[in-house]
Write a protein that binds this DNA or RNA. Structure first.
Lengths: 348, 348
DNA sequence: CTGAAAGCGCTTACAG
DNA sequence: CTGAAAGCGCTTACAG
């Protein structure tokens, strides 16, 4: 078991008196109908015995394929993205791919830096959650067609590309209808100030349903960097104060909801008696909250599987750069107490 | 900007009529006192102009250094580990190192698989959270001395190695004393059934303080795989039922606390009136919970910085394999409502 | 101060 | 069915 120096294909060649060409063919499964069974057996047995593993760096240098995928998430410490990352990791390893993670923080400059860093480092594929205002860069990257590029969590209308996303429009429509059906008359929307498709669709779904039902639309948009800050909280506070009619709040992201929940608590508003709450993206916090918070949950496993398997497939196909992989998955409405209608005379 | 094929050092050599040797020296900052200023300037200008970046795979093959660090976490989707990962990532990138993450799930077999996978792939350093019963493997890995090995979140007494950990004994002692000082007479401990130092110290700190104060020690140990299951919850339930005197619970991990919190809610026990609660490891959930849960929080940023900077330093030193990097950081007790003594006649 | 050449460990077109 | 040889893009001991 203890190896002085790593054994190489040349060592095997010398030891067995078989050319490196032949050995390489056998290792790479290209021996069929080319190499005699005896030789194959001999080589395989020896490899097995000494536990030889090809040097992947040399393979990369020679073939240009690194078996590496970069997952550029919005924020790898966000529970949603880290759950996705973990599921992908396992399948990638099974297929002998490595994944390198990084976070854009939803910042264009950071995403650009990261892209530059990895473009020069023989990476086979990118799975990217592009930040705000990054369309041109994405389009260029995809046009270059040097690596497989998979876009996650958002997508673009203007050009062809691979993507895996939630059906955010549909989810938002269902969420809003559900609140209306529960008897809430004045649903307010707390969203992100962003041109990303995800955010846009969540807003539009809400607007569409409100319009259909001849209800007044009321929304506040907070910028990404403000969500977890006092400024963000203040914006939501002012929104609620300005619109005292609001009896229900639809949050577009779980971070917004957390800020919102803190605020409602501070304001002494009771959920769902004074104001009902529904948010996108489940977290264990929401189930344990008092009262438990209703959510639209994303199918994390399914998303992760589509992402990594789609990427792996595109990597295999290799020569058909035009094949497109586009998946739109449905969200799941999880009803909990926070969005329930409490009858007026239900007090203790 | 648009490159047909990647430019190589040989291309530059031809173009400029300067040998690849000289160019390589210049690129690697080994030109000082060797190469004339004019040549250096000429090469640097040209590199700047064409945006040449050395092929890192070739460098790795030649030098044996890959500028890659593997972070083998217990579970990369756990908020604690993903927060650590994110902070390390940034510093690593700044130093042109890549990080590959993976999760052991606290399973020996999985850790072994992962180790085998990466040992054969020219990785410069491992940052590892070793699972249960993995001491021999860790000792062997460290003895081999092929890569820098940094142990995180736990450590071993029996052999020398680099590590970064929380002072779990001290934290547990302070936590238990704090509960006792708050007037809770019968503190129970909910821990993990594990031989990992972290778990052991948390238990021992509790036991030590209880003994010092001539209090009866009462604890239940749940195995890692059971924590999030009904079996785990049942174990805690039986523990509480068997020990009705318990007026305070110290949880050894945040997962245990979450299971415990669900249980206490189901049992209709009021926190802190019926039973007070304190747990290791903060999560945003705990602050928002009703009532807010007191915690011993780990200094995540500090831990991450020590980890990555320690690793990077060891990587630089390179030739002094015996230098040891050992950091033990203090936890912070964050008092919130869940551990407060409520005076008997405080009811509304 | 500078360069020719070997070699890291593979893969693959080519020849037989 | 099998092998000699070139080459991926670097770095570095050696020579001058």
């Amino acid at each position: 078991m203890k190896e002085k120096r790593k054994i190489s294909i040349k060592d095997i060649s010398k030891k067995l008196g078989i050319s490196t060409t032949t050995i390489s063919f056998i290792i790479n499964g290209k021996a069929e109908n080319r190499i005699s069974k005896e030789v194959i057996k001999k080589v395989e047995d020896y490899i097995e015995k000494v536990g030889y593993k090809p040097n992947s760096t040399a393979q990369t240098l020679r073939t240009g394929k690194s078996k590496t995928i970069v997952f550029m998430a919005e924020d790898i410490s966000d529970p949603f993205f880290s759950a996705i990352a973990k599921e992908m990791e396992e399948i990638a390893f099974e297929n002998s791919y490595k994944i390198i993670y990084c976070s854009t923080e939803n910042k264009k400059e950071r995403a650009l830096e990261l892209l530059t860093l990895f473009k020069d480092r023989q990476v086979d594929a990118f799975i990217i959650t592009p930040p705000e205002d990054f369309k041109n860069e994405m389009e260029e990257l995809i046009k270059e067609n040097k690596q497989v590029v998979m876009v996650f969590d958002r997508y673009y209308d203007d050009f062809e590309h691979n993507y895996v996303v939630l059906d955010n429009l549909d989810s938002s429509i269902r969420a809003t209808r559900y609140l209306l059906n529960n008897g809430f008359q004045n649903v307010g929307f707390v969203g992100l100030k962003s041109d990303i498709s995800t955010t846009q669709e969540r807003l539009h779904g809400y607007q569409q349903v409100m319009a259909e039902n001849a209800k007044k639309e009321r929304s506040v948009l907070v910028s990404f960097d403000e969500v977890k800050t006092p400024t963000g909280k203040k914006k939501i506070y002012e929104f609620i104060s300005r619109n005292p009619q609001i009896d229900s709040l639809l949050f577009a992201t779980n971070s917004l909801a957390i800020t919102g929940l803190k605020l409602l608590k501070e304001m002494g508003l009771k959920i769902p008696e004074d104001i009902s709450v529904l948010t996108f993206d489940d977290r264990d916090l929401f189930e344990l909250y008092s009262p438990p918070i209703s959510v639209i949950s994303q199918p994390v496993s399914h998303l992760a599987n589509e992402l990594i398997e789609g990427t792996l497939n595109l990597l295999e196909e290799d020569l058909k750069p035009n094949s497109r992989f586009q998946k739109v998955l449905k969200g799941k409405l999880v009803e909990r107490t926070s969005s329930q209608r409490i009858s007026e005379n239900n007090a203790i």
